[in-house]
Write a protein that binds this DNA or RNA. Structure first.
Ligand SMILES: [Zn+2]
Ligand SMILES: [Zn+2]
Ligand SMILES: [Zn+2]
Ligand SMILES: [Zn+2]
Lengths: 132, 132
DNA sequence: AATTTTTTGTTATAATATAACATTATGTAA
DNA sequence: TTACATAATGTTATATTATAACAAAAAATT
């Protein structure tokens, strides 16, 4: 079986929802929203999410346990992600900065470890919240 | 009340355990291990963890929902953390690299956001696991 | 000593995620 | 085109992680 190149029904339903959303979605909020489409159990959602993360269509924002659609040609299949997170309004934006990704993809320390993947989350106040 | 400079009993008990550990500890594993010392409920552990994270004595490894003691003079009170994580043996090491922290502390993009904090997690195979 | 703030103790419950197993669908190859 | 292997689904139950709400005790501030 060759590498999956099309999404299954459940995966497509979950992806559509996450892509439409202007904010990160939590798994159980996704579940609630796709129940009318027939996904009735948490596992159906988590399985779709797992696959979508694996193929880089979405990312998990770890500090928030929430999911966002990739805005960045699938981020080398989810191997290199960076986000900015506003600690006041919780707005999350995927950072697309080639200098940053280059720096991090090439990062090495003296541990002898070869890093194949990273996730970076920046926190602060967004423009709007800063001016309040 | 001035900023807390000593740890309370519960905080100290939890910190001692996390510092003794050679691997990241999960909250409920901590709970199990401190029950003989009188911390019987999850909240007692979570409260201690929250405070210890806040003052930079420990960090949360977000992708693992686990906690490690800071090895790095309390990481500017937990505002700038980086970890390397082996995806095979789950070994987690706090990265202490001044170039990296300088780069990330000074990072700016065009969003107008001022970042006051970051967390970075690198994934790969450690030396040991690579040679298997 | 009175006041405020922080920490604690406690019970209950919310939120997040996976185990286990049976079934169906899909891709691969003889 | 049938057998085989792999991947996806459906379902129930349960494990894991984390917080709400409230009362009481301890510590710092005035
Ligand atoms: Zn992306
Ligand atoms: Zn904001
Ligand atoms: Zn640290
Ligand atoms: Zn390893």
């Amino acid at each position: 079986m060759q590498k999956q190149e099309h999404l299954t029904k459940n995966q497509q339903i979950v992806l559509d929802l996450v892509e439409k959303s202007s904010e990160p979605l939590k798994a159980y909020s996704i579940l609630f929203n796709v129940q009318k489409k027939g996904l009735k159990a948490p596992l159906q959602v988590y399985r779709a999410l797992d696959k979508l993360v694996e193929i880089g269509k979405i990312h998990k924002v770890e500090s928030r346990n929430a999911f966002v659609a990739c805005k960045n040609s699938s981020c080398q299949v989810s191997k290199a992600t960076a986000f900015s997170i506003c600690e006041s309004c919780e707005k999350v934006t995927e950072i697309n900065n080639s200098k940053l990704s280059k720096y991090l993809n090439n990062f090495q320390d003296n541990s002898g470890m070869k890093y194949s993947k990273y996730n970076l989350e920046f926190f602060g106040l967004c423009k709007k919240c800063k001016n309040k």
